[in-house]
Amino acid sequence: MPPPPPTAAERGIEVRQRLLRAAVELIGEVGTQSVSTRLLAERAGVRPGLVHYHFASLPALLRQAAMGAMRPLLTEGTAAFTAADSPAEGAELLLRQLDGYTGRDPQSLLAVEVYLSSARDPELRAALSGLVAEFREAIAAALDSAGHPDPAGAAATLAALLDGFVLHKGLSPELTADDVIPTVRHLMQP
């Protein structure tokens, strides 16, 4: 006996997910300013009218897609850092994970584009700022537990360094974690 056909609610959830996945791809490929309803619908394989049926607006959909992509990156980074044996090892682990990015790969381009878009979109800026603040607070708490003399400052510096590392890899693909780890280890020492 074949499975029953999906319900209208299940089809709606699937369309929303397809739109969000397509938006994440397009943000990194063409930038948020170039994502149109038509382009997004085409990539998702749906009619353009469904974009506005399922989301209040195209910018709202792009914000949700951007935050949906950025949240796991930062929460996984936080988990990796706090699970490490020491803050220095946690920072090294994060840098080594970022070494896998070229600065021109879809994930790097997505992150750069989301940061850039947040400068123009106050709602995205507020959401991304909150997410980054959570990341810095978790790093600062781990540094404080390890006896670091300036946990908040070191956490902010590490977050900025990680972002800058991704940006610089796009300009200098030969840049590796090994180039910055000695300095970062020193920064993380209590």
Results as ranks from 00 to 15, higher is better:
residue 3 P to Q: 10
residue 6 P to A: 12
residue 8 A to M: 06
residue 10 E to H: 07
residue 12 G to R: 01
residue 12 G to P: 13
residue 13 I to W: 14
residue 20 L to E: 10
residue 21 R to N: 15
residue 21 R to G: 12
residue 21 R to Q: 14
residue 21 R to A: 13
residue 22 A to V: 05
residue 22 A to K: 03
residue 23 A to L: 06
residue 25 E to F: 13
residue 25 E to M: 12
residue 26 L to V: 00
residue 29 E to P: 02
residue 34 S to F: 02
residue 34 S to I: 00
residue 35 V to M: 06
residue 37 T to F: 03
residue 37 T to D: 03
residue 39 L to T: 08
residue 40 L to V: 01
residue 41 A to D: 10
residue 45 G to P: 10
residue 51 V to I: 06
residue 51 V to Y: 07
residue 52 H to T: 13
residue 53 Y to A: 09
residue 53 Y to I: 09
residue 62 L to H: 02
residue 65 A to R: 01
residue 67 M to I: 14
residue 67 M to P: 05
residue 67 M to L: 15
residue 67 M to Y: 04
residue 67 M to W: 01
residue 68 G to E: 14
residue 70 M to F: 02
residue 71 R to F: 04
residue 79 A to S: 13
residue 79 A to T: 03
residue 81 F to D: 07
residue 84 A to I: 05
residue 87 P to R: 14
residue 89 E to K: 14
residue 91 A to G: 09
residue 92 E to K: 06
residue 94 L to G: 15
residue 94 L to E: 12
residue 98 L to W: 03
residue 109 L to V: 00
residue 110 L to R: 06
residue 111 A to Y: 05
residue 113 E to K: 01
residue 113 E to W: 02
residue 115 Y to S: 12
residue 123 E to V: 00
residue 123 E to H: 05
residue 129 S to I: 03
residue 136 R to L: 05
residue 142 A to F: 01
residue 142 A to V: 03
residue 145 S to N: 05
residue 146 A to I: 01
residue 146 A to W: 00
residue 148 H to T: 00
residue 154 A to K: 06
residue 155 A to H: 07
residue 155 A to E: 07
residue 168 H to K: 12
residue 168 H to N: 11
residue 172 S to H: 13
residue 174 E to V: 12
residue 177 A to E: 02
residue 177 A to S: 12
residue 177 A to H: 02
residue 177 A to V: 11
residue 180 V to R: 04
residue 180 V to E: 03
residue 181 I to D: 15
residue 181 I to P: 13
residue 183 T to F: 15
residue 184 V to I: 12
residue 184 V to G: 04
residue 187 L to A: 08
